[in-house]
Design a protein around this nucleic acid. Structure first.
Length: 518
DNA sequence: TTCCGACAGTGGGGTCGCAAT
DNA sequence: ATTGCGACCCCACTATCGGAA
């Protein structure tokens, strides 16, 4: 199919841009799939990866070191759209190479060169693509269907290949040239990251058990960083959830894996910094350890990382992804010493499960992941076999300001600035922002109400309000903040409901918030 | 015909590395 | 030394579509 035209570089960027615009205009998913599949049916082999990549909102280069700031004031646009897909891709590779060597001036010059060769229509597309905000209503999920349609392969086969390969453009290009047979050729490869299985969520343990089916496994949810560890012989590589390589930052994990008897492994788990008493450090401490590259020795002494595995995808050359959870666990338990296993309990009894939840929270951890004993390791799809449960805190806070929204929230005041009451000063202390939990109806209501309370603008996007409106906020915890004046910020704040029955004087105080930060 | 699973969008706080100031 | 940008850790929630029931 790809060799239909037998030439190279015949697809123009403008072709891709036009399809993207058609996808944006079409609300029906099947319609979007149709537009995408039509283009995929006429791209050359060398262009398939680029087209699939762009039309699912990412770059083949992953990141090129160019963001919104570098993209301000682009050069004048061309009138004729002549840029080919392969030309644009080559320029982006050059930009990435230069970014790796320093010199922002050289990078800026190349970005200018790229944009000077584009029409304003193409510039607008590239701007959104490079800033990661394509917003055409199609990402991997829709693209999988489009690849299936264009190649004639079942979408389940495309999805399966994506799980094993971890990168959709490569999978799509293979499907377009080699069809189903090419998709079946993708195998789990030690040293190359697999798309990790993700968890859905439930409000409580009972609901999670109902979703997962009973009995189910209740695993501790540790507040660390997800890791996928590969070992082939004495070579170990470690990947994050987004498949970035962090091998160099986690020597403890590398040593732990090298200490295992099997030398052909792919394991799934979590790294976390624990205190000497075994309780977890705040998430920031683990995150800092995992992203710090230099000065590792001292850091390692001060804040060692622990690893806890919870799944085995491959052991001793055997691929385990299709086995039910219970069988993968058996293999894992035989492969890894007990100290490296994520603590868990198997039960179908709600009261026992609820007590276990209370215990894990008491131990300082984040919650539980409830897992079906029968589900295979299915990447990408959230909510199938794994369900996370976390406790929820709430506070009544005062809305101090609001920011104008973007996209479908344009023209609506969307993002709330939240404050706790400070009895000492008689004022309010900002604890963070949230835009989550708002229905369209609530969004419309609050925009109207906020404009009544407006008392000026601090900047172009922000409207400051008379501090009168009380809103009930749910959040996961209070963390130390270098940004906000009170030194505290809410983690994962979201709106539950407005409290018209309460006045600002009834809102929760900074002291209450501080008592939650332990 | 109704229900519900999967997806995309809309942004949140914190941290590091790096280049420029 | 500090600042700003880019990238990436962690992420919750609602609206919508379309297949399942």
């Amino acid at each position: 199919m790809s060799a239909k035209y037998g030439n190279i570089g015949h697809v123009l960027l403008i072709d891709v841009v036009r399809v993207s615009e058609a996808v944006t205009r079409t609300s029906a998913r099947l319609g979007k799939v149709g537009h995408l599949a039509e283009l995929l049916g006429r791209v050359g082999a060398d262009e398939a990866e680029i087209a699939i990549s762009y039309l699912s909102g990412e770059l083949p280069q992953r990141q090129v070191g160019v963001g919104w700031r570098t993209l301000q004031d682009p050069p004048p646009a061309k009138l004729a759209a002549t840029a080919t897909l392969t030309h644009v891709d080559a320029l982006l590779s050059k930009i990435k190479a230069v970014s790796g060597q320093g010199s922002q001036a050289a990078r800026k010059a190349l970005v200018t060169e790229l944009f000077a060769g584009l029409t304003s229509q193409e510039q607008a597309f590239m701007l959104r693509l490079l800033s990661g905000e394509l917003r055409q209503g199609a990402l991997d999920g829709v693209m999988i269907e489009a690849i299936a349609k264009a190649s004639g392969a079942p979408s389940a086969d495309v999805r399966r290949a994506l799980t094993l390969r971890g990168w959709l453009p490569a999978v799509g290009a293979a499907a377009l040239t080699g069809g189903v047979a090419a998709l079946h050729a993708f195998k789990l490869e030690v040293g190359r990251a697999v798309s990790p299985m993700l968890a859905g969520s439930a409000p409580n343990v009972a609901a999670a058990l109902e979703k997962a089916g009973t009995p189910a496994a209740l695993e501790w949810k540790l507040d660390g960083v997800r890791v996928q560890a590969h070992r082939s012989g004495d070579q170990v590589r470690v990947f994050t959830r987004t498949l970035d390589d962090i091998t160099a930052q986690v020597p403890e994990l590398v040593e732990a894996v090298l200490g295992l008897a099997s030398d052909d492994l792919v394991l799934d788990g979590e790294v976390i910094a624990l205190r000497p008493d075994g309780r977890p450090h705040p998430f920031q401490v683990t995150a800092s350890r995992v992203t710090t590259k230099t000065g590792a020795p001292r850091l390692r002494e001060d804040t060692p990382l622990s690893v806890f595995f919870f799944d085995a995808l491959r052991v001793d050359g055997a691929d385990l992804l299709d086995l039910p959870y219970a069988q993968r666990q058996e293999v894992l338990a035989q492969t890894v010493m007990p100290g490296l296993l994520t603590p868990r309990l198997i039960t179908g009894e709600v009261p026992e499960a609820e007590q276990y939840f209370i215990d894990v929270i008491k131990a300082g951890h984040e919650g539980l992941v409830v897992k079906s004993l029968t589900s295979p390791y299915a990447a990408g799809r959230r909510g199938a076999g794994w369900i996370k449960v976390k406790p929820r805190h709430t506070l009544d806070l005062v809305v101090l300001a609001a920011e104008w929204g973007h996209g479908r929230r344009e023209g609506k005041l969307s993002n709330l600035h939240l404050g706790a009451r400070d009895p000492e000063s008689g004022g309010f202390v900002m604890l963070g922002k949230t835009f989550k939990g708002l229905t369209d109806e609530l969004l419309a209501w609050q925009t109207e109400r906020f404009l009544e309370l407006a008392e000026g603008s601090t900047d172009e996007w922000t409207v400051s309000l008379r501090p009168e409106l009380v809103v009930e906020i749910a959040f996961d915890g209070v963390q130390r903040s270098p940004r906000y004046p009170g030194g505290m910020a809410l983690r994962f704040a979201r709106v539950l409901r407005y409290r018209p029955d309460k006045r600002a004087a009834d809102a929760d105080t900074v002291e209450t918030v501080r008592s939650l930060m332990l």
